[in-house]
Amino acid sequence: METVDLSATLSTAKEWKEKLQAAGIDLSSCYQCGKCTAGCPMASAMDYSPRQTVRLLQLGMADTALRSRTIWLCASCETCATRCPRDVDVAKMMDILRIEADRAGVAAVPSVPIFHKTFLESVENHGRVYEMELMMKFNMRTRKLFNNADLGPKMMQKGKLHFLAPKVDDGGAVRKIFARVRERRDG
C-alpha cells in the first residue's frame, strides 16, 4: 500500500471542503462512524465504502475518489443520507463526484456515464425518454450490441416498449432548458 503524503493532499482537502460546503455538505461534520456504509446496499461491490469516500475527501485525496468505482456503483438510494447522525448528505456528495469525474474524463465504470449521456440526449431530443432509441444507442456506445437483447421483444410483446418516439407538445421548451444550462455551465 502506498504511503499517503499528507503535505501534498491537504491543500486539496481545503478546496473540497469549500466546494462541498457550497452544496450544503459539511465534510468536517463526518466523524467516520460508518453508518452510511453499514446500510449501503451496494457497499459490497464498491472499492471504497461510502465512509471511506468521505474520508478520501477529508484528507484531500480527491483524485482517488474521482477514479473510484464506488461513485458509479452508488444506486442513489439515499439510505446513507437518511440515517447519517451528522446530517452529511453522502448521496449528494456522490452526485458531485460523478459530475466532476465525468467532466474530467476519469470515470472508472464508463458505461454508467455513457448511459446518463444517452438518456439525457433522448430527453433533450424528444422531451421524454425514448426507450427504444436509448437502449439501442447505449448498446452501440458500450459495444455490447446484444446486452439485454432478450428483454426488448419481451417488453414489446407486453406493449411496454414502442417503436416510435414520444410526441411532446412543449414548444421546444426542453431543448431550450438544455441550451440555457449548457450556456451557464460553459460561459
Binding site: V112, F115, H116, F119, V123, G127, V168, D170
Partner: peptide, 19 residues
C-alpha cells in the same frame, strides 16, 4: 399537465445539478 417533460430521472443529477 399538457406538454409535460421527463424529470431527468437519475441521469440528470449525475450530469448537472442545475439541469
Amino acid at each position: 399537465l399538457p406538454g409535460w417533460n421527463c424529470c431527468g430521472a437519475s441521469s440528470a443529477h449525475s450530469k448537472d445539478h442545475l439541469l
